[in-house]
Write a protein that binds this DNA or RNA. Structure first.
Lengths: 233, 233
DNA sequence: CAACTTAGAGAGCAAGCGCTTCCTATCTTA
DNA sequence: TAAGATAGGAAGCGCTTGCTCTCTAAGTTG
């Protein structure tokens, strides 16, 4: 029932003719003209992979890790399963590549947010609000799906460990570099940042099954207080 | 490959003869003696259900929610799939009953711990240490598996909402009743408790993929500080 | 242009899934 | 004790899974 027979759009044709392929003049539409413009193997490959990664991430967001089947991803990407298996050795390889992509996108998100945050009136508070938003975003839903699945899947664990570490190391580096942690003594910076991430992640995770919107503003104040008065170490 | 052909023990026979069934004297073992002692239908039913719930919880802990198949549970319980479907309408019904059982066990755990904690030298610190331990226990692994799965499964969500709410309401009631939150102004008690639960849960969840044992003692201090100086609300 | 390589589609495979059906053995009841 | 109800086992159903195989169309290379 899920997406069965769905009319997939996702431009089945390349979006633009490309400057290098201007081999035709304008004129009457002939049969030859109707054919898709020439694209190199590398171009085809790259757009296919990009579409598969997009589709995988979207599918994990919408139906969760386990129901992200090869079939579901390929229908969404507008490709056949055969096409997918040409680019990736296995479903797990596709998942791993998607995890890499998620890590990259999240680091982009944090990196660009951090720049903006330092120009806010109260950078610290703005940073905490951003942290909550980020922890509630679809991309972190993917993160949680993968972390939970990895607990009982050694092979998956092995494959996502690196991108996850890159993420945690990266957000700390961003915050540090932007000076958002300047008011916190250096040895307490990591616990403080990661603990607030955990807290907001738990908030987002619990919201689904036990929503407590009344507590959320209070939690922001709690986080603010922690950041202003971090633990001695 | 996982657990394939595993030799399951789990006593396939009832564990004890039971005081009510002492119909035989000691003597030579006859064919009749080899038969299991008489048990009422209700008894059989109850032990079967209990074994299924145990097996389901253990299976979720070991292989995760999605790989907790009817087959896997029944092999572990030493029963056939048919037996399971006589007691539960569907796999989901089995899962829901197990969620109920997990809620009950966790509340027991918190309830009995809380009694002990109030007699400690520093009840607050002891409570926070217990909170961390509890958040790292197999039963809360089950909790997280179900919460993540419920995000993308409306029917599961519907079924586990109630036991989860009972859990959160219950641990707050326990802590309150034992006086563990006395030093925190009443309106700040819920945020504080639940935020620390989220924090330690995030710690446990992340430990698998990005272990930071160096930060854990610092995090306990952070929690202690939050509890001693909760947010104003 | 000819020979070769590669991208992708589509059909099909064994294995595993939740669940049903049917049968036997045990328990209950009159 | 005979008749009916129930617990549990075994086989198997339709369906989906990850993945393979084969074939065609398109790009690349000499």
């Amino acid at each position: 029932m899920l997406g069965r027979g769905e009319d997939v759009d996702h431009e089945g044709r390349p979006e633009r003719a490309g400057p290098a392929s201007g081999r035709r003049q304008w004129g009457p539409v002939t049969d030859t003209d109707r054919r898709p413009p020439r694209r190199s193997q590398q171009e085809r490959r790259e757009t296919t992979v990009a579409r598969l990664l997009d589709a995988t991430i979207e599918t994990i967001v919408e139906v969760g890790y386990y129901r992200t089947t090869v079939q579901a991803v390929c229908v969404r990407a507008g490709l056949s399963a055969g096409a997918m298996f040409r680019q990736f050795d296995s479903r797990l390889a596709l998942i791993a590549a998607s995890a890499d992509e998620v890590s990259r996108r999240l680091l982009d998100l944090f990196g660009s947010a951090v720049d903006r945050l330092t120009r806010e009136a109260d950078p610290l508070l703005a940073a905490l609000e951003f942290l909550r938003e980020a922890a509630s975003s679809p991309l972190t839903d993917v993160w949680r799906e993968l972390m939970i699945a990895a607990r009982t899947d050694a092979e998956l664990l092995d494959r996502i460990r690196e991108p996850i570490a890159r993420f945690y190391d990266g957000i700390y580096a961003s915050a540090e570099q932007a000076g958002l942690l300047d008011q916190i003594p250096p040895p307490a910076r990591e616990v403080t940042l990661y603990s607030m991430v955990h807290m907001f992640s738990g908030e987002a995770m619990t919201r689904v099954v036990y929503p407590r919107p009344d507590l959320e503003p209070q939690r922001l104040r709690l986080a603010h207080q922690v950041a202003l008065d971090p633990p001695e170490v």
